[in-house]
Design a protein around this nucleic acid. Sequence first.
DNA 1: GCATGATCATGC
DNA 2: GCATGATCATGC
Length: 488
Amino acid sequence: MQEEQYQTVEDVIRAAYKARGKSLRDFIPREEIERVETEIKRYGTRRRGLLGDLVERYIFGLKNNGRAEADFNIANVELKTTPLKRHLAKRLVSKERLVFSMINYDSVIEEVWETSSFLKKNRSLLIMFYLWLKEADLLDYEFKFIHFLDLLNNLSQEDILQIQKDWEFIVGKIRRGEAHLLSEGDTFYLGACTKAANNKVVRDQPRSRIPAKPRAFSLKQSYLNYLIQTRLLGVSTHEASLYKTASKNKTVAQVVREKFAPYIGKTDTEICAMLGWQPKRKSKNHNRLLVNRILTGTGTNKVEELDKANVTLRVPTLEASGSLKESISFPAFYFKDLVTQVWYDEKEEQMSDFHLQLEEKKFLFVVFQKQKDSKEIVLRKTMFWNFPAEDMEKAREVWEETVHLLNEGKVIKEIQTQKDGTKRLLTHFPGSSYNGVIHVRPHGLNSKDVSELPMRDQETGRTTHTKQAFWLNASYVQQAIESAVDQY
DNA sequence: GCATGATCATGC
DNA sequence: GCATGATCATGC
């Protein structure tokens, strides 16, 4: 087969469709199987590029020119192979983000969106989704869906605008000499994800002497999941869209700001009246329900755009003095699971769960404040926030220390007996005075909600301990709230 | 008042 | 039944 066979987009799509429901093994001639298997072994675990290569060679019948990365472009269609996995053994979700080409820090600052090299190369995508299985051979991954996606034609107008603004935000940061401060959580749908270069861990950037990690443009995993659910699986997400009652010519951040604007400075009672909402009684999550109503007009907490952008809504309440008492938690972790992870492995392109969350996640803080002489609370501000890249080392310290302690079996420091005779455990885990940014604290149903320890505890000999989580220090979040400036 | 441990309330 | 977000409780 020759490349001339593919003249049009339809040719390429037709060729890709042959793979649906099949795996690479179905396309490789018997006499070549052994050679291919040897090749796979040689690649070791870094074989993602290889999968793309093999698709190119055996499904599309193109000659390989020894490139490590799959990077084929025929009839102006960019072909992508990307893994799916089963979530909770059921629903299909994307295993990772969809990674595009590396960002060239030097040349991208001269570009504008409309004529950008990103758009030129990646506007028309033919995505081959295969089902990844932990134990399976890569030759046996089944191609589940073939999906053609034109970024400027097949997405909604508001999503296209958001992606453009995301691109401009990333490029703006590079122009300001802040490529080393890029983070995937900076943006909503299109991200700048870390990507190890072949031989260099860091590279130069044009407007600063500080070396930066190599990064590539990517569609966020959360966004990809939305596409998979709605377009490939045809599942309704039952989510409310922010744009239902707002202009489509605005970014997500603009729409959110617009929605909250009339209520800033108002008390919760006033807001209820404005919304025409009469809660039966003031429940504990009253503020949250109120915020949901402002965002979507209903009580639902599922907001399409926030979900697509991996944004978590949080509703902290400041004290009347302006201080924030409560820290912000991340999901509880399992001790045994935590110690198997690495903070960051460039070679394998792997990250610990916590690192990934700090890198990818965005928060929407809707900040209320208590009053000195009233029980009512006042809506102060809303802000999008993501963990700043410059504090990532602090997070790493806490994470590494926690893993170290678990591996040493150093968990319990002291057992205190309280006044009422009940016992209270003090641990070695890094507390909130450890480095002012992140700490480790219990996070479970109660003290009996435990997780198995990888090492028996030296002090007590116990093999389980109360589930813990990483927390953003209250004082740290307070500072972030105080110094917030609109980025978009 | 802060640091740390523990628990509650809700929704899926 | 459990994860998640929010808050409470105790000791120094």
